[in-house]
Design a protein around this nucleic acid. Structure first.
Lengths: 373, 373
DNA sequence: TTGTATGCGTTATCAT
DNA sequence: ATGATAACGCATACAA
């Protein structure tokens, strides 16, 4: 299933070797002390075996061992064989800090998201992680909350790891962050948003157009008294902007709205609708996420209102429950996994100096008409 | 809100400095080229500024700069001042690979989970991330799926980063993994499970006892014809074991059961109940997660069955929607954030050689009686 | 309080 | 195809 398939360096080989020789593992001496004792200079702390230990064991130079592990095609097969034996005998595990220092490539990608426990982002993160792993990169994950300042602080600390690439959520950053990241000259992908002027590369979609499409659909369906159940992050704000722009052409007064804190939840959907219903009458509730929509639907039905006959509800995200909820939830579908997968691919290809594709990918979205609106 | 507060090294200071001088940032020269040109030996690649660049700029030795950044209390305040100015002038960002190589401490913690897009784990991961950040560690996150072999491969690659600590999900690992990790002599915390014999440290709870408690509760409430809606991961299997053990004392025949794949979803809850109802009659459906329970409830009600009068449903996890679902979902509550927070604390304290607390923390659980069962 | 010498474990580069 | 040497950027240990 999930396997490191493309990355054929040290671990690819060793895992193959381990798999083949698992039966004899008990006979193989894996003990650092043995090598410590045969070492000339004795250090206080017992060290992990190094290239030099492996080289000594194999009767080769450290450089040859390094090559056998990283670019085996440049080494005689017989020699590679000897090296692998020595690696297993010593229990050698490469030191990526030393390797990265020398090679100036860390095989590390830093990812900054506002939240992990947010149904919107987890799929993207998982896809990022999968694709990065497939390509031999590790993922440094940081949670920045929804403030630009926190993000800037985090990125500064992250850059000390000398990541080969950085993934940022959104397109709004402090000027310091931009300065620092441009100065570091590290490839960057911004995700989950769209702009003609990204820092570097971008994979996302237009939240404003999502809002517009939502409003157009609702108007077409005949809804004229919308109420908003909304969270306060900047991307939700953009969707609201698009929504209001379109509604404004048909509805004179501003849209009634209830704000809820992040993260969205079923409970907030329920309480939010309660509050909203106390402030007016509506024919449709537009929610900034499916989670809120599910809560709104539940609250409406608990009050004896039928959805969508008495009150329609529309969400955003097409989360997994939207298609099987009762009623099923009309929503905007976004390929969240694709965002992560494409972001990882863009970064990896840039890092590996492959011919650069379009640095701005609009992943798009589509409205899924279901029962709730 | 989320701030790096305890960790008072380089970035703590610099961010303070940046905050204070933000107004003048535009006037500050941050440009690597300038320093390249004043450097004696010219390298081909434009390098990021190093300690040496800062030292030269400040008229100090690199070692003093290093101290000013890492242990400012050992340096004269005036000198620290000079260093900070030079740091800002050069745009210096420490190289953690070089620092880690020299100090043998990476300030990195590797976290291995079966899935990210799983409502059970995200809260734990987020808490882990928060607590690690608070203590000045970065999180290397890897997704292993549910196979031990994949986990073993991942850990081998992760150890090449020389993490100061490792977090593993669960207590079942391949013998290779154990060998490798013990050989690396790296602190380990296993989470989300319980055993008297962890690899090293552990934060979790007994899934078997969860199953027992669930069964006892249901028997006490008078339910006698349970049906199981279950996923196939090993922790769910342990809960089932506990459940069956207790039910076995009262119910002679085995428990009817429908297995669903991971990750659990509302849709699987609905289809799973459909299947189950085709195979017998029940008074309660025991689900391996709240997500399945929510789906089962929805399916039952869509068939005109009232929950709990016609069919009771009990879940596991006390996910955020459980308390506000309609009906509210009776479930087992686990402090998922605490698992992450405690795991991070245990690791950090061990890494920093503080007096070792109990290395096995049973985080416990409690049954939350609500409407659904 | 500051500076010097040395080593951390690897890879780039050049030589053989 | 293999080896020798010199970085890589920093912190430890010790000296002043």
């Amino acid at each position: 299933m999930r396997k490191v398939s493309l990355y054929c360096g040290f671990f690819g080989q060793m895992m193959g070797a381990l798999a083949m020789t698992r039966g004899m593992m008990n006979n193989v001496q894996i003990n650092q002390q043995i090598f410590r004792e045969s070492t000339v200079k004795s250090t206080r702390h017992p060290r992990a075996p190094t290239l030099e230990d492996v080289a000594r064991n194999a009767g080769l130079s450290p450089m040859t061992v390094s090559r056998a592990l990283n670019t085996p095609q440049l080494v005689r097969p017989k020699t590679v064989e000897k090296v692998m034996l020595a690696v297993r005998a010593t229990g050698y595990i490469p030191n990526a800090m030393a390797g990265g220092l020398a090679s100036r490539r860390s095989k590390l990608v830093a990812v900054v998201v506002p939240q992990i426990n947010n149904n919107m982002f987890v799929d993207t993160i998982q896809a990022l992680s999968d694709e990065l792993a497939r390509r031999g990169y590790h993922m440094l994950l940081c949670v920045a909350g929804y403030t630009e300042q926190t993000e800037a602080e985090l990125v500064a600390t992250l850059l000390s790891r000398r990541p080969d690439g950085v993934v940022l959520t959104g397109i709004h950053h402090t000027t310091e962050l931009k300065k620092v990241i441009l100065n570091a000259a590290v490839p960057v992908v911004e995700i989950w948003d769209l702009t003609p002027t990204p820092l570097d590369m971008l994979v996302g979609f237009s939240h404003e157009r999502v809002g517009q499409a939502t409003a157009q659909y609702l108007l077409r369906k005949g809804y004229r008294r919308p109420g908003l159940l909304w969270t306060s992050d900047s991307r939700a704000a953009q969707r609201k902007q698009g929504l209001c722009d379109v509604f404004a052409s048909c509805i004179s007064k501003g849209l009634p709205q209830v704000d809820v804190p992040l993260p969205a939840s079923l409970a907030l959907g329920r309480s939010g609708l309660s509050q909203l219903l106390g402030e007016g009458t509506f024919d449709v509730i537009v929610c900034s996420s499916d989670t809120l929509a599910q809560g709104a639907i539940m609250e409406a039905e608990s009050r004896g209102m039928r959805v969508p006959q008495d009150l329609a509800v529309i969400g955003f995200g097409d989360l997994d429950f939207a298609a099987s909820n009762r009623p099923t939830i009309t929503t905007i579908s976004v390929d969240r996994r694709a965002i992560g997968q494409q972001a990882a691919s863009l970064l990896a290809e840039r890092i590996e100096q492959q011919p650069c594709k379009a640095p701005i990918i609009d992943i798009g979205f589509h409205l899924v008409e279901r029962e709730s609106a």
